[in-house]
Design a protein around this nucleic acid. Structure first.
Lengths: 202, 202
DNA sequence: ATCAACACTATACGACTGTATAGCAAAATA
DNA sequence: TATTTTGCTATACAGTCGTATAGTGTTGAT
């Protein structure tokens, strides 16, 4: 049984081969992890040969860099498009929502990040550093227009943004899995306990 | 540069070769992941040859089963040793503490579970199922002696126990990493924001 | 029309993977 | 003491890995 994973062929058929390869790799990495994904599997999923993957991205490291840059672009694009209007709290909320929308539009982002971030970090990709930088800039611009809430230190605020946006998504599959095992697969979905992840000023 | 990872040679030198192999694999899996760990690397870390690894565990799957059974034993041992005395709440608290102690004595457990549980779950090992069963029994025995708190449904309580005990450990490295990047490596350690993970009745 | 750049395929290479097999020495069993 | 079992090493095999190289056809500029 050969399964197509993640990307709709229809949506991808008019992309350049390079983008198709990146998307295929992205989806496979998110689902099975980079180690478990061979260049040949990526090539097949993208409908090309191994040689072309190498031609466009040189090495597997290069492929990962392209993917992680793509992820950063997605975050940036989501944040960028919300106008700087209203109170700081409103802007922050709108940004959180824009990111949440982007994440639900691109489930591979969540899958990839879940895998990448739980590594003893930095060993491989630099995606967390990049996203932390982005979140820091995000807080900085909020401080420029109007006055950012001084209730928290800057770095705490940055961490708060990231954890709020990602933490729940990482742990939710664990809760879902346990819920299925304990309550059975056809239990009332809305009885499922809600997961809360937050950071607290120490 | 060849580094020894996780296990103290002194503590392991008087173990059987089989246990040494399991421990070596356990530490390597926790640090680098199963995919990135070859049987030959395990053998070298345990001071034996590949053949012996196969002799004792047959396949790599067998090795993982042994490791996961070992993890379950560690959890069970921790819970088992707290006496059934005091109020239900006191017992529950004592159990949480015993588990916390076990986890800090065996950091590989946290590393291994972090990797195993955040995968699209069940694809490989059955460790989460086993631990959920254990937690369910844990709640059941509490219900037998005295009366368990009826404030929550059973399954919510089980999930609560697991998430409290593990959730924070999984996300903390992410917080630490961001904290280092933002505040610098030599910032006051106790300014670091505290991560809170909990489940809420819906 | 010519030539260079580009997108792409095909094949091959050495390294490494998990596992199978054969054999040796020590320990246990008889 | 003789024999089986056990713990262990050594070597080998077939497959897969990431990557290199050579070559084909197509596009675009001069």
């Amino acid at each position: 049984m050969k399964k197509t994973v993640g990307v709709s062929p229809k949506l991808n058929s008019d992309l350049t081969a390079k983008a198709r390869i990146r998307n295929a790799a992205f989806a496979l990495y998110a689902n099975y992890g980079e180690d478990a994904t061979s260049m040949r599997a990526i090539a097949e999923a993208a409908g090309v040969t191994v040689g072309l993957v190498v031609h466009h991205f040189r090495t597997k490291d290069g492929l990962r860099e392209a993917i992680e840059q793509h992820i950063v672009d997605l975050f940036f694009g989501a944040i960028e498009q919300v106008p700087l209007e209203g109170t700081t709290a409103e802007i922050a909320a709108a940004r959180d929502e824009a990111v949440a929308d982007m994440l639900s539009d691109n489930p591979a982002v969540v899958g990839y990040l879940r895998r990448a971030l739980l590594d003893p970090m930095g060993h491989r990709g630099r995606i967390l550093e990049m996203l932390t930088d982005l979140a820091a800039k995000q807080v900085a611009t909020l401080r420029n227009v109007g006055v950012a809430s001084k209730a928290h230190r800057d770095s705490s605020q940055v961490i708060g943004v990231m954890i709020r946006q990602l933490g729940q998504l990482f742990l939710q599959p664990m809760v879902d899995s346990m819920w299925n095992q304990l309550a059975g697969p056809n239990a009332a979905e809305d009885d499922k306990p809600l997961l809360v992840v937050k950071v607290q000023e120490s």
